[in-house]
Design a protein around this nucleic acid. Structure first.
Lengths: 213, 213
DNA sequence: ACTTGTCCTGTCATGCCGTCAGCTTACCGA
DNA sequence: TCGGTAAGCTGACGGCATGACAGGACAAGT
């Protein structure tokens, strides 16, 4: 499906080429973690990778293009975020456990990829459809699953008819994503205290009821 | 409190100076709305304002510095976000109304300042304390008020003891902010449908109960 | 008109951007 | 072993943004 990796000028990349390409991506990823996105320059990435700017431009049209590549890789990994939800139940104690697992997985994924996710979020918010698509890919599996759960509960009459499952699910996921990327701003609230409260909100939102612990 | 407006090289700005300074800020604001933050250049802002780059550097150290100035102005206005909560009650129908008003005010404020808020959010997430402070200033009045309400309900025994008011309030506000800045991503959910669902989640989170409409 | 202090711009050195031609390296078939 | 071909890399270049400076334009008071 992925086809062959190609350089900007159309050549197919061989073993060595793919290696430097990946090295550039790795260095870019490091730079994103250590400096503001606005200040990440091609020349810095190239220097860090022990190569020249011209080489960078052989593999990527610009910094944004390379970031997109990184983001795609991350999105592939992030699709696993909803594994918890495939099997998890939202009934009784299992529901509380499911909510907790979801929060845990989310915060963990964000902690591992915070720099990249910031950039994706910015790009999406600025209206760049490529970034919006990637963000959707990461979040959609979770929102979709949550929405399905809500719809099911709704059909059983346990949730009001005028609740829009997609809206509630999307809002809850947005909450998790936002809190995850601003964890440091929650001064006075330790991460250990934060998680159960997030899980509580998720459980409340999905089931409309307080969890039984 | 604001003292005199000063140029970078320490001189006090007169009437004319303040005018061009403000014009630069206005043009910067426009540029932020129309192009990605990463691509906003000093020279473009200066050209748009009918002046030269050198003039820009007389009033601001760099683009970031000017953005901070804009953000401060916005933060001052945004403090009014919590007016709704000062008088609002969370009991019965009034509670539902309060939640709705809060959501309405939030989305409206974000719609009016989306470009700037994106940048502030990014800066804060990247660890820049100046931006984090501004973000806190905008959100804290709301979180503080919500947290106070939760604490009060808690003291009456209507909410579990192990709920951390600050955590719940912060998460709800983060949700509102995040949803507001990604409104376009909610495809398939119209804004008119989104709002009541957000209000529902806010009400659930604050009071622990479904609203009576 | 002269002075004073504010305000703006022309200009310059520096450094990054993005592209090209051209050199080096690896692979492969004869 | 040896050339041929394509991949891989870089030096160098014009172009543009940055940031600093000195000096000219302007308004206001005398």
């Amino acid at each position: 499906m992925t086809g062959q990796v190609r350089t900007v000028d159309g050549r197919v990349a061989g073993r060595r080429g793919q290696a430097t390409r990946q090295k550039l991506l790795d260095c870019l990823s490091e730079m994103l973690s250590s400096s503001p996105y606005r200040d990440v320059k091609v020349i810095d990435v190239a220097r860090k990778a022990g190569t020249s700017p011209a080489t960078f431009y052989q593999y990527f049209p610009d910094v944004e293009g390379a970031v997109l590549e990184l983001a795609e890789q991350m999105a592939a990994e992030g699709a696993g975020l909803s594994e918890v939800l495939e099997e998890g139940s939202w009934v009784g104690r299992a529901g509380w456990r499911t909510a907790q697992d979801l929060v845990e997985g989310f915060l963990d994924f964000w902690r591992r990829n915070d720099a990249l996710l910031r950039v994706v979020d910015l790009g999406a918010a600025e209206g760049d459809k490529r970034f919006a698509k990637i963000r959707a890919k990461i979040l959609s599996s979770v929102t979709g699953s949550l929405a399905a759960t809500i719809t099911e509960l709704q059909s059983k009459g346990r949730i009001d008819k005028d609740v829009k499952p997609a809206a509630v699910a999307g809002a809850l996921v947005a909450m998790l994503a936002s809190v995850a990327s601003h964890q440091k701003s929650f001064q006075g609230v330790k991460p250990a205290e934060l998680k159960p409260n997030l899980a509580l909100l998720v459980h409340l939102g999905v089931t409309g009821r307080k969890p039984t612990r």
